[in-house]
Amino acid sequence: MTNLEILETWFRRVWSEEDEAAIEEMFVPDGRAVGLGEQTKGGKDEFREHEMLGPEEFKVFQRALLGLVKDVRIEIKRSITSGEWLCALCEFQGTSRRTGERVRMTGTVYGRFSDDQIIDAFNHFDFLSLFQQLGSLETGTFERCLNCRE
């Protein structure tokens, strides 16, 4: 499979089909997914992103998100491949399990692949927008945060 086909298969199996077994099949045990959990600050000028290592932590993330959203479809709108790396602009769509309303967000995945598996995935999705649509955050949270003064 090409890198694009691997990612499309991952999105379909893990998210649309809610197939937890696909995580272990398609994500190497010592791989890492960045940008899907808490981000922690290091020292004054250091910023480290929380890394989820291996399939087990990703399963926790998958269960949590699928607990909020069903009928998930992730479409790759644009992609660029360079060797074992792929960068993909994506649109996530689903239905709120609580309200039945449709929700969507955009994001990017910058991933490294080998032997039909994901080795690294750097994720940047608009979870703020998603959580506002799900009712977990008030509408306008982003704008209010921009107006905050220390």
Rank of each mutant, 00 (worst) to 15 (best):
W15Q: 09
E24A: 03
K59N: 14
G83K: 15
F125Q: 09
T141E: 05
T141P: 01
L128V: 15
H124K: 01
T2W: 00
A121H: 04
T99L: 14
Q117T: 14
I76Y: 00
S79R: 11
A21E: 08
D115H: 10
S129M: 00
E75R: 15
I76K: 00
G67M: 07
K44N: 09
A22W: 04
A88K: 01
R48W: 09
V109I: 12
L86V: 09
R12S: 01
V69K: 01
V103F: 12
E38R: 15
S16H: 12
H50K: 10
L137D: 02
E91R: 13
F113Q: 06
F142N: 03
E49R: 13
M52K: 14
V34R: 04
D120Q: 05
A21Q: 06
F27M: 10
I119F: 13
L89K: 04
R32Y: 08
S129P: 00
E56N: 12
M105S: 01
G54K: 15
D120R: 05
D19K: 07
T141V: 05
F131Q: 05
C145V: 07
S16D: 03
W15A: 02
E38T: 15
E25C: 09
L65T: 08
R78F: 12
S96W: 02
N147E: 15
G43L: 12
R63Y: 04
V14Q: 04
T141W: 08
E150V: 10
V28Y: 02
E8M: 08
G94W: 14
T99E: 15
M105W: 03
E143L: 15
T81V: 08
R78A: 13
F127Q: 11
N147S: 15
S82I: 01
T106Y: 13
F61Q: 09
H50T: 12
E84C: 00
M52V: 14
H124M: 10
R97D: 04
C145W: 04
E20G: 10
G31M: 08
L4D: 03
E5N: 14
C87V: 11
A33I: 13
E38V: 15
M105G: 04
P55I: 09
T40R: 00
K77I: 11
Y110H: 04
R48N: 09
N123Y: 02
A22K: 03
T81M: 01
Q132D: 00
V109Q: 07
K41P: 05
S114C: 01
V103M: 10
P29I: 00
E84S: 02
E56F: 07
T9L: 10
R63I: 05
V34I: 13
S96T: 03
T108I: 08
L146D: 00
F127H: 05
R13N: 04
E8G: 07
A121N: 08
E101W: 02
F47T: 09
G135P: 08
Q93Y: 05
L86S: 06
Q62R: 07
G107Q: 13
